[in-house]
Design a protein around this nucleic acid. Structure first.
Lengths: 159, 159
DNA sequence: TTGATATCATTTGCATACGAATGAATTTGA
DNA sequence: TCAAATTCATTCGTATGCAAATGATATCAA
């Protein structure tokens, strides 16, 4: 308890208050959703790296989404994979440097920079997708199938 | 469906296969736990920033943990808040620059760098903890109380 | 039509995040 | 005891991640 040192009369008052407001006086960082979310994310990234060493999760997300939707503008891709413009630029730059994507200018709208998979990029995604399924599985491994389904449903509500 | 273009006989085979293996041929990024985890974390950080503008979640985590356990070594603090040595150093450096923590050398073990809250740091944490509770609440707001409890239980298992 | 807005992309600056290498200090174990 | 292993901290390099400012282009509306 957090009030062990108070007088007997004070204890009574605090107990009554706690009956209405079940909150503990202490703040427990490890019980806060943000803190655990950060740790769960860290764990996932570590699992990802153990299976796919030469690509980061954001890089793979970009490739997988391009594989899914085909050529799109850099900005639109960012929207699809939840990355802001500055971040997606860096990711695409690095994928381009490795020959996995290629860039071209939109014919009509000269503001847009189109991004597409190269043949190498397509081969890479298709080779990696089975591994990615394994990463999802391993990340969820601490949960039973039923728990995992519940977790995914609730997590999706939060995100 | 993913096999609309196959022959009627092929459809039957695929249906039988799918009965055993419910996996779709497509890979859906937005259904992968890592992708949603990243988005949920992003949302939390945004909520945090809206309530506590002058501190990041890792910085607050460091202060809150120091408030909880008192003086510790930089490395030990990192363990407690799930940050590696290189990351925690940056966080502590910035908190020190703002006068919220102070550093000293361990008398016995000369390798250790002790970190402690300053008076200002202590005041800041105590002022911010109520806001942090609100951040946790708002992050979980899309869930009912029961759902939130379930989610926290499962999330803790994953992290 | 044209002036105000909006969109797309880039750049800069700051803050995590982590692997790897390094050096200093401590602990372990043969 | 003393060499090997471990621990603590620092530094470097790379990669997100986002706010804010900027410039180019496109769209909207009076």
């Amino acid at each position: 308890m957090g009030w062990a040192a108070v007088s007997a009369g004070e204890e009574v008052r605090l107990k009554l208050v706690e009956a209405e407001e079940p909150e503990d006086n202490d703040y427990h960082l490890q019980e806060q959703v943000g803190f655990i979310l950060r740790k769960a994310h860290q764990r996932h990234v570590a699992i990802f790296a153990a299976h796919i060493a030469d690509l980061t999760p954001p890089q793979f997300a970009a490739l997988a989404k391009l594989h899914d939707v085909g050529e799109t503008s850099q900005n639109q891709l960012g929207t699809l994979i939840a990355m802001d413009a500055a971040t997606v630029k860096g990711v695409i730059d690095r994928l381009k440097a490795r020959g996995l994507v290629e860039l071209s200018k939109h014919e009509v709208d000269k503001r847009r920079l189109l991004v597409n998979l190269t043949v190498e990029g397509r081969e890479a995604v298709e080779r990696l997708i089975p591994l990615a399924r394994g990463i999802t599985e391993e990340t969820l491994a601490p949960l039973s199938a039923k728990e995992a389904a519940t977790f995914m449903r609730l997590l999706a509500k939060l995100a």
